[in-house]
Design a protein around this nucleic acid. Structure first.
Lengths: 124, 124
DNA sequence: CAGAATCCTAATGGATACTG
DNA sequence: CAGTATCCATTAGGATTCTG
C-alpha cells in the first residue's frame, strides 16, 4: 500500500486548486444537473435555479478547462450550445452524488442540530 | 422506491443551503483535517495550510452551527479549545473523502485535460 | 440563444492590535 | 492560547445592458 503522492491539506499541492474548483456550490450544482442529461445554456440556467448568467458562464468555463464538461456549438441561427459531462466529469459526478445523498439523508438531523445550537447559544 | 423529498437544484430546497456550507473549500479541508484526529485551534490552523485565522474561525462556527463539528473548551490558563467531528460530521467526512480520493486519482488526467484546453484555446 | 461588458455591492483575505 | 475587532485591498458575485 503506497501512500498517496498528494496531500490536499498542503497549500502547494496541485490537488488543492482542483478541490477549490469542485468544492464550489455552483460547480457541484452544474455537475449534478448535467449528470441527468446534456443541456443547453438556457436550460441549464433554468435547471440550476438561482444561478446568474455570469456565474453559470464562469463556472462552465472552469469545468471545461479542467476537462469535466464538454461544450458543443451547433451553428444554427441563433446558435445552439450544448453542455455535457465528459467521461472524466461523469466519474466526478459519482462522488458529488455521494455528497448530495448525504445531504438528503441527514437534512432532518441537521435541522435538529441547528435548533440545539440556537438553544445553547442564543443569537448574540 | 420513494422519490427523495428534496431537490438541491431547487433554490428553495433546504438542502441547498446545506450544500452551500459544505461545497466550500475551507469547510472541506477542515473536515478532512479533523477526520484524522481532534485538533486544537492552532494545530488546525497549521494543518490546513493557507487558511487565515479569520476564515478558520468563520468556517468552524458554520460547521458547529450545523452540528458537524464539536467545540470543547477546557478552562486551563491559557484556555484550551479542541475541535472534533461529531458523529454527523464523521458521516459527512466519508463523503468528502470520496471527493478527495477522486482528486488524487484523476489529478494526472486533469493536467492532461488542461494542456489540451490550452492548445485548443490559446490564452485570449 | 448564448454570451460579453459594465457597474456596483458583498464577501474574502491579509495585517495589526487587543483580551480573557 | 484562542480568539474578537478593525482597517484595507482584492476578489467574487449580482443586476443590468447590449450584441453576433
Amino acid at each position: 500500500m503506497t501512500a498517496d503522492p498528494y496531500d490536499v491539506l498542503d497549500e502547494q499541492c496541485p490537488t488543492r486548486e482542483v478541490l477549490s474548483r469542485i468544492a464550489d456550490k455552483w460547480a457541484m450544482l452544474v455537475i449534478l444537473a448535467l449528470e441527468e442529461k446534456t443541456l443547453r445554456f438556457s436550460a441549464l440556467r433554468t435547471r440550476v435555479r438561482g444561478v446568474t448568467q455570469k456565474m453559470l458562464t464562469q463556472t462552465l468555463r472552469g469545468l471545461e478547462k479542467d476537462g469535466l464538461v464538454a461544450r458543443k456549438v451547433t451553428p444554427t441561427v441563433p446558435v445552439t450550445v450544448e453542455y455535457s459531462l465528459t467521461p472524466l466529469g461523469r466519474s466526478l459526478s459519482q462522488a458529488v452524488s455521494v455528497i448530495r445523498r448525504w445531504t438528503y439523508d441527514y437534512m432532518d438531523e441537521i435541522k435538529r442540530a441547528r435548533a440545539r445550537f440556537q438553544k445553547t447559544k442564543p443569537v448574540a
